[in-house]
Amino acid sequence: MDSATKKELQILACKVRLGIIDGVHSAKAGHPGGSLSCTEILTYLYFKHMNIDPKNPKMANRDRFVLSKGHAAPALYAVLAHRGFFDVEKLTTLRQIGSILQGHPDMKNIPGVDMSTGSLGQGISAAVGMALSSKHFGENYNVYTVLGDGEIEEGQVWEAAMFAGNKGLSNLTAFVDYNNLQIDGTIGEVNSAEPIDKKFEAFNWATIVIDGNDFDQIEDALNKAAAIDKPVAIIAKTVKGKGVSYMENAVNWHGAAPNDELYEQAMKELNETLKSLQ
């Protein structure tokens, strides 16, 4: 990736993070930590990788995205808004009565959302169904999904992995947002699914381990994945709360909104980052 492209993506990621904080602060609820950790993945997919058209969100042969870790909705909404699916101003209506921006993704009402998710473990099955549909009906689009590292404790994830591996769904790529934290503590303290890569490999997937906050590595992994004749799991090591100092690697920011003072601090930090990039 050339440095101009990288800078452009970093600026976009910073704007997405500002959108996440704005949304969660306005809602006085939501999940900033896991939204900030997967920001680069979603930004890269929607701005550089997927075949999509914000003016035609239901385009028949578009690539599909399923946010299996649906609680990272603030990140998805911010990416969709900045990509032009709806107004950026809408982000501050997150979780409000009358807003299209439900607490978790709602495909019926939000332009650009391909699948309703929120109940953990279910999104990957839907992504598998989409990948199967693409192949079965000869439409040849790709399907991407992002799982949480805590989410993969759900048994359904491995039912889906087994099926996708057995059917050789090479048009399916699943990221695991490996930020090492879930609500009750670290992955290890709760019920670790490690070794995550070995588990996917056992189900006949290819795996790639990357730094999931690094655009070069995301690009490289997706390019590699496209050439692999199997479903691919990209184990993306990320920092929970990335970009906001007091939220980084702090489990208490999994599902809490900043108060006015901490909101101002977060916005100041992110705006400084943005300024340094521009």
Partner: peptide
């Protein structure tokens, strides 16, 4: 794996 089957069906229908 009935739970996965329902999810796969949802994904197919979503396309």
């Amino acid at each position: 794996a009935e739970q996965n089957m329902m999810g796969i069906a949802a994904g197919i229908a979503a396309t």
